[in-house]
């Protein structure tokens, strides 16, 4: 079966003045199987959001896709224009954001907005659409959905709004849902509820999901597979358990080390990654991570490591010259 999403060699550039262009996303390839949940993990500026925006065809000047392909099932999204693209966007693929207010109209009742989204992609009457909207609100775990459908966005709590936005994204029964930091602005307890909801929806409806997050804790509970981005490139991609148990890229390892949870040792500094994330356009030669990497050797400054399987048996891919030798040192 064709995957829900196939991204091949995707490159996004920001056009500067005088014809210069800076690469924001560089040669990114991954697939998401139908019904699978992938995490796109990285820090701000790593290009993870731009990757999602490019998949949705939402990039605006000065940003544009300069290369690669994006296939939704068998449909080449880059070949679509105008109405055909609009039908797919919000229809077969939908996106939810960190700030629900970005996609909710403050002047309309939430039920009407969901009904509107339903009518946009299906030939149904106003009343029928409203009934389905209330049904969707029930599905996303909102109590009293008929009453809440009549509320305006500002009358709802942050978690509730996020649920409404998820309901709206589900309106056209998409095959793929892109979630851009959907829980970052929420309290921990609400955060957990939303992750639970997304996992349930993905299982029940077979919706493939890509979650963009910088929080490896959230990604752990949500994803089957994780792709780690650094400076616009994928540096590691692996099934979730493998990645957490034995991170192969030094950046992944460092990210896991810097995460704050209840097991963090007290009274000593949290392990960090030295230096600052690089700015696009001002990347180091060779491996972009080498200036911050504790394992860096001369070869890292000269040659860019390719994303490849470290050994034939592993389903993981990693872009590091020392993916295997580093392993050996640690285990042995």
């Amino acid at each position: 079966m064709t995957p829900a999403l196939t991204v091949e060699g995707l490159t996004v550039v920001a056009d500067g003045r005088r014809g210069s262009a800076v690469e924001i996303v560089r040669d990114v390839s991954f697939t998401v199987a139908r019904g699978a949940r992938m995490g796109l993990v990285g820090e701000s500026g790593s290009g993870k959001t731009m990757t999602a925006m490019a998949v949705m065809g939402l990039l605006r000047r000065p940003l544009r896709v300069s290369g690669g392909s994006v296939l939704l099932g068998d449909t080449d999204l880059r070949a679509l224009r105008g109405r055909a693209l609009a039908r797919v966007r919000g229809g077969r693929v939908a996106m939810i954001y960190q700030d629900p207010m970005q996609s909710l109209n403050p002047l309309h009742r939430v039920g009407e907005q969901i009904a509107e989204a339903i009518r946009l992609h299906a030939e149904v009457g106003r009343r029928e659409a409203m009934a389905r909207a209330v049904e969707l609100l029930t599905d996303v775990g909102i109590d009293d959905p008929a009453v809440k459908a009549r509320a305006y966005p500002h009358e709802l709590s942050g978690g509730m709004r996020q649920r409404v936005m998820i309901a709206m994204a589900l309106a056209a029964d998409p095959e793929l849902l892109l979630c851009d930091e959907p829980t970052t602005a929420l309290d921990v307890t609400t955060q957990r509820r939303i992750v639970e909801l997304l996992v349930r929806i993905s299982r029940e409806r077979g919706v493939a999901m890509v979650m963009i997050t910088h929080d490896l804790g959230v990604a752990a509970g949500f994803c089957d597979e994780i792709a780690v981005m650094y400076a616009g490139r994928l540096v590691e991609q692996a099934p979730v358990r493998e990645l957490y148990a034995a991170p192969r890229h030094p950046y992944t390892e460092a990210l896991l080390g810097a995460a704050c949870d209840l097991t963090l040792p007290l009274e000593r500094p949290i392990p960090t990654i030295a230096g600052q994330p690089p700015l696009p356009g001002r990347l180091a030669g060779g491996c972009s991570f080498h200036p911050r990497c504790p394992y860096a050797q001369e070869v890292c400054t000269l040659e860019r490591p390719l994303l490849a399987a470290p050994d034939a048996a592993a389903p993981a891919r990693v872009a590091c010259h020392f993916a295997l030798t580093r392993e050996k040192v640690r285990h042995g």
Partner: peptide, 23 residues
């Protein structure tokens, strides 16, 4: 206690078990 339980842990086995249990 509920606040403590809600903190995500960077451990897929534990996290996914908790999320399944919540269903």
């Amino acid at each position: 206690r509920s606040l403590m339980d809600a903190i995500p842990v960077a451990d897929p086995d534990l996290e996914q078990a908790r999320i399944l249990a919540a269903r």
